[in-house]
Design a protein around this nucleic acid. Sequence first.
DNA 1: CAATGATGTTAATCCAGATTAACTTCCTTT
DNA 2: AAAGGAAGTTAATCTGGATTAACATCATTG
Lengths: 170, 170
Amino acid sequence: MSKVKARKFLKGQFVVQQGDVCKTENFVLSGCLKTFHIDHEGQEHIVMLAIENWWTSDLGSYINQTPADFNVQCLENSEVAQILYEDLERLFVEIPKLERFFRIIIQKAFAAAQKRIVNNFSLPAKERYLKFREQYPQIEQRVPQYMIASYLGMTKEFLSKIRSQLIEEQ
Amino acid sequence: MSKVKARKFLKGQFVVQQGDVCKTENFVLSGCLKTFHIDHEGQEHIVMLAIENWWTSDLGSYINQTPADFNVQCLENSEVAQILYEDLERLFVEIPKLERFFRIIIQKAFAAAQKRIVNNFSLPAKERYLKFREQYPQIEQRVPQYMIASYLGMTKEFLSKIRSQLIEEQ
DNA sequence: CAATGATGTTAATCCAGATTAACTTCCTTT
DNA sequence: AAAGGAAGTTAATCTGGATTAACATCATTG
């Protein structure tokens, strides 16, 4: 009996909702999802954009089984492989190599998050965008521009301005 | 034969230097350390402040054994328990529970980093400072104010202004 | 105890990026 | 093909926080 279940979601559907407990770790089989937080002013802040072969969840909610700070929503019709918290923990005990696999993924994600924090402080908006573009060219084409602006921590208007500057430049 | 070696560092000494490969994972037995990046303009950006019982390293450099993006430097005389990359990986194979222990630590660190990214985008400087103060009161007292400003992504002058505002307010 | 360096403050000026708002495409759906 | 909504653009104005610079305080160390 497999502990992993593939589940289909339509564009717009939520895999995790802010306030709920995140019960599953999610592996994207197909499609595209955004992880975001809604602040007190109702503004959306995207922390992650996930496409095929990415893991996504509200890890903080998942590991402590506490209410989520983040939403995970499908930007396209998507298929997601899901595994429940208890099942994954049990599998880690049974299969140490699986736990190793996850440890390594999370280490990389953490190292990337630290670099992102520094970049957000040290690079101006235009350079953050250029860096994003070269790092995730696949994502840029699939996701609306205003969401990329949110991921990069700037307004859609300002990203639009940057882009028209870049076109002028060359 | 223990694979973990305690090592003493004087205030100002570097445990990791930007450009070198980070060979050890470091557990702070006593003292206080900062992890920071120097950008092209020579500006320092602090990503982490570590005191007793914290782990610190340049994880990206450590896991890939590539040149470090970060420096780790002692802010006080410190004692650090160090374990070499190969030794720790070997221990993980021998002792699955140790690997579990590390996986969980890193999951928490990653979840915290994601929240920090959102806070940096959604909260103004004053609220980031207030949040920091309640989250890490111990650290605030041990570390010079201009380093806290750097950790929070603002200038020392602005943090000074915020603090004098807060004093006026009550 | 001078002197030097590290830390912190205050105030004036400046600017990257936010906000606002009006307009344009381009899809969808009917 | 009209109508409504999502996405993107442009330009004017505004502001949180940076920059600059002068000064204050306090530890160290010679």
